[in-house]
């Protein structure tokens, strides 16, 4: 399975993270997204006319939407990551998968503006990001009141992975995560999962590993 990947892209990270959690090895093909704009070049446009990354290739299957990639990877080797136990789970999963595109448009847009100087109305992007974070926070509060730690049910699903990266990187776009205690606890729960991997800007929980010790003569 081949992923056209950019290390700093939160959408590409969703796929790398899901594959790591599902125990699937990806063949990573680095794309020169910045400054080369390789995703807008003739070779990648013939693979994905939308000119976006990630792109996932598996045999004849070519996927260009990250939520579809998460569903594919989970269906192949980690079906417990799909919310399929009830009509309500299915609906909630679809709800948050669709919601994740608003995180990309708002928080992701603010991040591209701040990091890569992409044009855009930064105040509107940030205000949209705050509105999305408030909605996510309210949803997580209600899940906690129902005794559930994740977006769909009491175990993580692809919906959590779809929402997590752009939320965790909100500060890159100048949007603070400080006012959202439920999001903070949810982010910790995701970063505590067995098999969790990092990307630049999203670090693992150091306290989960024993304290490293330098030998006296190394110092």
């Amino acid at each position: 399975m081949k992923l056209y990947d950019y290390i700093l892209s939160p959408s590409c990270y969703k796929v790398r993270l899901m594959a790591a959690l599902a125990g699937i090895k990806l063949d990573l093909r680095a794309v020169d997204f910045h400054p080369g704009l390789e995703h807008r070049g003739p070779d990648l446009l013939s693979l994905n006319p939308a000119g976006s990354i990630p792109i996932l290739e598996d045999g004849d299957l070519v996927l260009t939407e990250s939520s579809a990639m998460l569903a594919y990877i989970a269906s192949l080797s980690a079906p417990e990551w799909l919310g399929r136990a009830s009509a309500m789970e299915t609906a909630r999963e679809q709800q948050w998968l669709a919601f994740s595109s608003r995180l990309t448009a708002t928080l992701g847009g603010a991040r591209l503006h701040e990091m890569l100087l992409r044009p855009g109305d930064i105040a509107a992007l940030q205000a949209g990001g705050v509105a999305s974070l408030r909605e996510l926070e309210a949803g997580l509060v209600e899940q906690r009141l129902a005794g559930q730690a994740f977006l769909v049910t009491d175990r993580p699903t692809i919906a959590d992975i779809a929402c997590f990266p752009y939320v965790a990187l909100a500060p890159d776009g100048g949007v603070s995560l400080d006012p959202y205690p439920a999001i903070r606890l949810w982010s910790r729960a995701i970063r505590s999962l067995k098999g969790f991997i990092e990307m630049p800007g999203i670090h693992r929980l150091h306290e989960l590993k024993p304290e490293p010790h330098l030998e006296q003569d190394e110092a």
């Binding site: 400080d178 205690p181 439920a182 903070r184 606890l185 306290e207």
Partner: peptide, 15 residues
Amino acid sequence: ALSADLPAGTVIPAR
């Protein structure tokens, strides 16, 4: 903060 939002083994900012 609410006590429940600060579980054992965590640190948070407070204004």
